[in-house]
Design a protein around this nucleic acid. Structure first.
Lengths: 307, 307
DNA sequence: ATTTTTGATAACAAATTGTTACAATTCAAC
DNA sequence: GTTGAATTGTAACAATTTGTTATCAAAAAT
């Protein structure tokens, strides 16, 4: 019934003492004010303005509206300012989820970039493997997920539909074989997986284990998985102690290298692609876009970012 | 830019979780909500709602608006309620100015009527002679004036323009001659002013003095005005002490009768009319109308109220 | 008295806000 | 899988609201 425009008009009249001056202060023509007041009076069923020949004065009811105008308009302005701050990257919160091995360098570098450029944009961060991070994205618990897909498999393992997501490739990550330093083949420049068919294997996260099984199958053997752990530092530790060999993405070696371990390219080569993932809607949120950009830039030092 | 309607829509979406439910809760069709959100997003240049297939969720910016919605809408409702209270006579203030001799019975009775009918309407009251009360009405210092005009003269003494006022006759007040009880003519039933040409006179307020001079002139003499006072109780006291005779409106005698004084009709008769005066705008304010009605009713006991 | 200032009104233009009908999508259930 | 109910988006249109210009009438100031 009464809206912000009406209050603005009443307040202008109260402040300036005439319709004409109120109109000028609001950038309207004088008849616009006349009609606005008339409409308000019709709607409220009350006289709001006393016409005294040349000047006007608010009645008690008009003064009531004028008194309420300030808080209401101030609150509206505040709301607008807050939204504008988010739109202008002077505020905003982005909830990022990334898989553990990305946390070591890629994500911290991206967070630093965002913070440097937009100090008031807050990126919160938590670790999760791709299936959970994508589920969190879908359910609204996070805004950006950093996930990966092994060559030839879908990002979401084929089961989830990806149409509802927007993906941005960040970098290509080569999958290498990790051997203990004292292993007989540690000096090779390249290795066939089938050569390792009789070694005990150490597997990483479930998807990595799946990838290992898939590659081994293609190489014609069934690996003996002696240990499984999601913690890649532990994987490398186990390898260093000579308890087995493992497939590890290059990112791991570079960020958490273990001096007792060497990694070699495998033949045929295999890679995984690391993506930043979000939704089409969120992609248009400035703070989210800035985070994606930062991830992209942080990645270019290591890989190719097309975006 | 952002208005109350927009906030209402965002709040409804936040509360109900879908456009359809929000539309139902606001009595709109679903496309109305879709378009409203789209407009808001265009205006703010920000994504406010994440579309997740079947349901929707507010983005951070959307949540900001939803959070501001409550205070703004509550303040608007409060403003509306206050105005409605004034319109519905559950609130309101009327500033009444009346000339002194009306204060004794007419005005108190009217105030009591208003208070009985509309306990939350506050009528404040102050005394002023007609010229000042009308000036106060014009300048906005009061809402209703109780004034009088002697027969044949304008309410505002001819100088002021009455077009800008609305008048409502309350009662006719006969002008009588006050004599001390022991005056030789105290037993007469009617008296010609010319019979009193040689008496000392006591004059009331300036306008009353003017009326005395005018009547005396018509009766062919020039009265010897021995005392002047605006206080009619004093006038009657002076008369009772035999210090002179006076013209007093009947209202005075009835409300402040002095046992040492008799009042007689004069010939030719003279009356004054008591009016309630306000402005056309204020007349439409319910509390003012109620006060006018009460004055009218309070007067019917004594005179004729046409209104 | 005349001029300037101010509000009201009429007629019209433009923007807004809403509706209905229908297409497209999602999600759950069979 | 496939169907079906539920939900959002879009297009076309109608109604309302909101603003402008031109003009009038009244009030104040000179």
């Amino acid at each position: 019934m009464i809206d912000a425009a009406g209050l603005r008009v009443i307040k202008a009249i109260s402040d300036h003492g005439s319709f004409t001056a109120a109109a000028a202060s609001l950038g309207y023509s004088q008849p616009a004010i006349s009609q606005m007041v008339r409409r308000l009076e019709d709607r409220t069923g009350t006289v709001l303005v006393e016409r005294l020949g040349r000047s006007v004065r608010l009645t008690e009811a008009g003064q009531v509206l004028a008194r309420h105008a300030n808080p209401v308009l101030a609150a509206l302005d505040a709301a607008e300012a807050e939204v504008a701050a988010i739109a202008g990257l002077r505020a905003g919160r982005v909830r990022l989820m990334a898989f553990p091995s990305s946390s070591s360098t890629l994500v911290p570098r991206a967070l630093a970039l965002v913070k440097q450029r937009f100090p008031d944009v807050h990126v919160t961060f938590s670790e999760a493997e791709p299936p959970e991070s994508l589920a969190a994205l879908r359910s609204g618990e996070c805004d950006v997920a950093v996930a990966f897909a092994y060559e030839g498999t879908d990002l979401a393992r084929g089961e989830e539909d990806l149409d509802s997501f927007v993906t941005r490739p960040l970098l290509e990550d080569e999958v290498r074989l990790a051997l203990p330093l004292n292993h007989p083949r540690a000096k090779a420049t390249k290795i066939k997986l089938s050569d390792m068919a009789d070694e005990p294997w150490i597997a990483g996260c479930p998807r990595c284990r799946g990838h290992l099984l898939s590659l081994a199958d293609r190489a014609g053997f069934n690996p003996d998985v002696a240990f499984e752990t999601e913690d890649y530092v532990a994987v490398l530790g186990l390898v260093a102690e000579g308890l087995g060999v493992a497939l590890v993405p290059d990112l791991i070696r570079r960020s958490a290298g273990n001096p007792g371990v060497v990694t070699l390219p495998i033949d045929p080569a295999s890679r995984r692609t690391v993506y930043a993932v979000t939704t089409p809607d969120l992609q248009r949120v400035p703070a989210v876009a800035a985070t994606l950009d930062a991830l992209c830039e942080a990645a270019t030092a290591k890989g190719v970012c097309t975006g």
